[in-house]
Amino acid sequence: MLTWKFSAQDLAHTRFAQSPLCELVTSVEVFKNPGRHAVHLPWVRQARTALAGVSWELLSQLVPLPAVHVPDFLTPVPAGSSPTLDEQLAELTALEPAAVRRDLSRIDGELPPLVAELARDPAAGTARLAGELRAYWQAAIAPHRARIDRLVEGEILRRARQLAAGGPAGLFADLHPKVSWEGDLLRIGHRHVDADRRLDGARGLVLVPTVFAWPGVFSQLDPPWQPGLVYPPRGVATLWETSATGTSEGLARVLGRARARLLAELDAPATTTELAARTGLSAPTVSHHLHALCAAGLTARHRTGRSVLYLRTAAAELLCGDG
């Protein structure tokens, strides 16, 4: 069990961030152990084909099974809110050799051959690793980047609303089954960590929603990075689905089947285009129903970049049985 003690200043510095590198690295464990990550099986099947012929042996050795410890330089807590993969890879290749060796020294047992080479020559090793990460990303993650980003962005919007409505207790209430908030303490049920920590009042905690983290939750504890918590966003189970979502018959009789179906689909925030693809309705029809649901106070819309995400309001959550 890991326990973080928060002060008011720590809460003021707590924030969200997206991390392409964290998505990539957690996907490696999913790829190597798909049985433990069943919701991602559709992605695994596609990635097996996409990664054929791609060289990522060093990356594979750095993310073993079981992945009890992955070097911190592979999953750094982002300094900003949404760094690009190129920015994170630039930080990786700019690391001091001593920092690379320090992280690798925490690996138990004998280092695998390519990891041992990385320890002997960190400059050459991180350059090779950056190339492997970029190639893996282009083959296995980039084709799905839009849907992953929308799920993560929707999660951040939803959590921000919960924080505004219920404070830290509302923010952490259903973040993950292993995470709980009581008083000024955040408890995280890690199997391999048993520690009580104080945040230092100047950095807070960074929450990093990461789809391939499912079903786990991971913590970043060590300097120089800000403390971080990596967790799966709500709606991961529907990320790769194309089949129909169940619709409440009672709600369908009140709202109409199409509008009830759209509310059911908005278990995780989505765009008009995504909802049209899932439901088989035309985009103009979906837009018409969403405007009606917005007018009734059952959905809200938020612009993120070029996309507009729709999400259920608190009233709609109650109607759908999630209140």
Rank of each mutant, 00 (worst) to 15 (best):
P223A: 11
A237D: 15
G204C: 08
A213E: 09
V206Y: 02
Q226L: 05
E241M: 11
V211W: 00
T210H: 12
G204L: 06
S219G: 10
L239Q: 11
D174K: 12
L185T: 12
D174R: 12
L175I: 04
F212C: 07
A213M: 13
A202R: 15
R187N: 12
A173F: 06
P232F: 09
Q226A: 15
T210W: 03
L207M: 11
V179P: 05
V217H: 12
L229E: 11
R191Q: 14
T245G: 13
H190M: 13
H192N: 15
F212K: 06
G235R: 00
L185E: 14
L185C: 13
L207Y: 08
D184S: 14
P232M: 11
L185Q: 14
P227E: 07
R191S: 15
P209Y: 10
L205G: 02
I188G: 05
L185K: 14
D200Y: 06
H176M: 05
K178H: 13
D174E: 14
V193R: 03
R198F: 04
R198K: 06
A237F: 05
L207V: 11
G170Q: 01
A213L: 06
W225M: 09
Q220N: 14
G235I: 00
K178D: 15
P177I: 09
V230H: 01
R197I: 00
D222P: 03
P223Q: 07
A237C: 10
P215W: 13
G235S: 09
T210G: 09
S243C: 04
F212V: 10
G216Y: 01
T210Q: 07
A244P: 00
